[in-house]
Design a protein around this nucleic acid. Sequence first.
DNA 1: GGTTAGCGTTAGCCATGGGTAACAAGACTG
DNA 2: CAGTCTTGTTACCCATGGCTAACGCTAACC
Lengths: 231, 231
Amino acid sequence: MGNKTATDLLTVGSDRSPSRAREDYVKAIYQLGGGAPVRAAAVARYLNVSRVSVSKAKRLLEGDGLLESEPAPAKPLRLSHKGRALAVAMVRRHRLLETFLHRSLDVPLERVHAEAERIEHVISDDLASRIAAFLGRPSSDPHGHPIPYDDATAAGAALPTLASVAVGACVVVVSLDDRDDEAVGALAAAGVLPGATVRVERNDTAQMRVRCGKRTVSLNRHHAAMVRIAT
Amino acid sequence: MGNKTATDLLTVGSDRSPSRAREDYVKAIYQLGGGAPVRAAAVARYLNVSRVSVSKAKRLLEGDGLLESEPAPAKPLRLSHKGRALAVAMVRRHRLLETFLHRSLDVPLERVHAEAERIEHVISDDLASRIAAFLGRPSSDPHGHPIPYDDATAAGAALPTLASVAVGACVVVVSLDDRDDEAVGALAAAGVLPGATVRVERNDTAQMRVRCGKRTVSLNRHHAAMVRIAT
DNA sequence: GGTTAGCGTTAGCCATGGGTAACAAGACTG
DNA sequence: CAGTCTTGTTACCCATGGCTAACGCTAACC
């Protein structure tokens, strides 16, 4: 490529376009509540913005028909049908992009999320379909999350995490939380990936020990908490 | 895919993020001038914005070190070294994306430009490199424009257009102007694509007639003007 | 030489996205 | 029950991107 890292040639602080911000709010509400109403403060924390910004965004989103907030005393943010459809579409695009970036372009697992996070706001539905077809309609992304092909909300109950597993137990890795790049990098390096079988050998200090295939690896507990597992 | 065209779920007017706008200005200045200074009014027309917006953008771009506008009486906008590097990077990304969208995802030629136009602002240099590698470092995009792999400005003189060719002459199509979707669609349908050999059979009215391979097709002169040719 | 057209700039307005400071109300905690 | 969070909202402020109106200047054109 060129001699300069051109990405650094222009760095503007926020870089929030109107639709990008709105889509982020909708996605956050959806991912926090899984369809159920969510508190504005939770959204603020999730997106690292002030409560005020959420409050203002609320009005705009209502104007767009994406939100159906109850009248006077009721606080929680609730997505409208339209809002939910948008959220699911965003999740679909995100996961398809992650899969494509990882499988076809060899982007390291821990960088896939950030890249998809930006691209998901600018691709058309048609393009998302084409990517899905190109990949053979994969059922899950590289972090182990299912890809929703229709708007049927398949939220699913939260699974336990690897950090909560008792010593001696043998579990199967289901998914990694892609929001934590550092954890994903460490886990991928350790071979703790969706589908892997893992036996917990020690789990008392900040570092747990885990047997993964032929290797015994040491895992930061915080990182282990990013791993959803099944028995 | 889902039942709703989720792209329509949110439609915000301008959708100009800070970096997007700046990158568009830089690209416009570059493409209009090919490295040479450009008049602000020309940029305004090219981007469909007011002269005032260009004037304000000028100051911001100077602040970013992307523009080196002369002091008092001199008017034209001139890109700095950094600005030129960014412009070339944008062109590179754009053309790589177009190539990928067309070759790998089968996006119709006339839709490739618009899609790339949005994505080019959000992908990293690393991703652009990976796309280039994935495609085998193609030398030109599907419209026939060269892909610049280094920052050496290979502007190249403007070639004549198909509309200016005398009857009876036989020419080779070099490139199509991807900014005109309608023309690109019509030309692609007619088989007038980069690399094709074309003989002009009539060129007097608004519709010219052209022999392209085994077919004789009728071409709108305006569309023919979007075709750059060589002998 | 005067008129006219085009150009760049300033002043002022709007929307969006983000931020503090401050406050009233509800929800916990003691 | 009092005290302390927490929460949502309001009132302002800032930056960006875009707009129109208006002005001064230059450069053509008669």
